[in-house]
């Protein structure tokens, strides 16, 4: 999985994080290192859709949190991905 928006949502599903913490978390759980441009491109899109929002903070390192709509979207996307994974694995085993 390399869709940066899903990676960011999956990271925030585990708790609020700022940009650098998301980069490190994603690298740990997905083995993918998002560059700063890619990460903030995803953050911009997700915030525009209302799937994440900034958390009040006085630090320049702005933390974000996943919204209810974001959880729902992530759930739908992962369920769809999971169906694809199950089907692919089953077909590989039967081949």
């Amino acid at each position: 999985m390399s869709d940066p928006t899903l990676l960011v949502l999956s990271s925030l599903a585990g708790g609020d994080k700022h940009g650098y913490a998301m980069m490190e978390d994603i690298e740990r759980f997905a083995g993918v290192r998002l560059g700063p441009g890619t990460l903030y491109g995803a953050i911009t899109r997700l915030e525009r859709h209302g799937w994440i929002r900034p958390v009040n903070s006085k630090d320049r390192r702005q933390p974000y949190t996943i919204t209810g709509a974001g959880r729902e979207h992530l759930h739908d996307q992962l369920a769809s991905l999971s169906r694809v994974v199950r089907t692919g694995l089953r077909r590989l085993e039967n081949a």
């Binding site: 940009g19 441009g37 890619t38 491109g41 320049r60």
Partner: peptide, 29 residues
């Protein structure tokens, strides 16, 4: 996003890959 993006760049280890990523991100935006 400028202030938090600059904060992220301060935390990140600089690399040519990230520089290219920022350039492409800026063009897309």
């Amino acid at each position: 996003y400028g202030s938090e993006f600059d904060a992220l760049l301060e935390d990140s280890k600089p690399s040519a890959h990230d520089a290219l990523d920022i350039f492409c991100g800026a063009l897309k935006m």
